[in-house]
């Protein structure tokens, strides 16, 4: 974590509710979900597909408005922020690893990783150096000049993670980060995220991969939009 950034972050969700309405049905994605995460924690949001994990992560990141409830990051209500401020928050404090990787097809790997830094005003050379470092840390520096379309699913996932590493946000929200990985790589990824949390990052992983629970300091199991169970590691 870069030394000039704030060392601590605290994310608090209170009574989050969210319902998707279609012509034929109403689907409850979140139902009175409350959650608190701080620096150094590795929290696993575990559940089956459609249980509301991704909605919870996107709501925390300010990408989706809840019907009710609020999210506070460092005592700031995310939904009271303007859209520009929310964007700043994602870029500087809360990084997201997307399930679909969210890579720009028009940019190569290095440019994708460096993009949030450049958007934030970091000089091109410095952004490139940080991007290279992040890629090296994940062992994919050799892919730097490739286009996303030339990568496998697992490689794309690691590029998405490298982008968050390079940006150095205090919180990392990972949405199904091992969806495209085999068991070996999945384990390696969780080890990496664990190491990040050990370094002081706040890591929240939404996944249906049971392996994640072995690394998490805390696991919340979601069923039909509710946190049905909470398990703290070692208890």
């Amino acid at each position: 974590m870069p030394p000039d950034q704030e060392p601590e972050i605290k994310i608090e969700c209170s009574d989050l509710s969210k319902t998707y309405r279609t012509a034929n049905e109403h689907v409850t994605a979140l139902a009175d979900v409350s959650l608190s995460v701080t620096s150094g924690e590795f929290v696993c949001i575990y559940g089956a597909s459609g249980s509301g994990k991704s909605t919870l992560l996107h709501t925390i990141a300010g990408l989706s408005d809840p019907d009710s409830g609020n999210v506070q990051v460092d005592d700031r209500d995310v939904f009271q922020l303007t859209r520009n401020e929310r964007a700043d928050l994602r870029r500087e404090r809360v990084g997201v690893i997307f399930q679909d990787h969210n890579l720009m097809a028009e940019l190569n790997v290095l440019e994708n990783v460096a993009l949030p830094l450049r958007v934030g005003g970091t000089r091109a050379s410095e952004a490139k150096t940080l991007a290279h470092q992040a890629l090296s840390r994940l062992g994919i520096d050799n892919l730097a000049v490739r286009s996303p379309s030339e990568l496998s699913g697992g490689q794309r996932q690691r590029v998405g993670i490298a982008r968050v590493l390079a940006s150095g946000q205090d919180a990392i929200l990972a949405d199904e980060p091992t969806g495209a990985l085999d068991s070996t790589n999945s384990e390696a990824l969780f080890i990496l995220l664990k190491a990040l949390s050990a370094d002081g990052a706040c890591v929240v992983v939404a996944t249906h991969d049971p392996l994640a629970r072995q690394f998490a300091t805390r696991t919340h199991t979601m069923i039909d939009g509710r946190i049905a169970m909470e398990k703290v590691a070692g208890r």
């Binding site: 990408l63 859209r83 520009n84 964007a87 700043d88 928050l89 994602r90 870029r91 500087e92 997201v96 997307f98 969210n102 890579l103 720009m104 028009e106 993009l115 949030p116 958007v119 934030g120 982008r163 940006s167």
Partner: peptide
């Protein structure tokens, strides 16, 4: 579509 991706990464709407 690209704009949405950028927004998700933290690029402000004004940008």
């Amino acid at each position: 579509t690209s704009a949405k991706r950028l927004l998700a990464l933290g690029a402000p709407p004004r940008w």
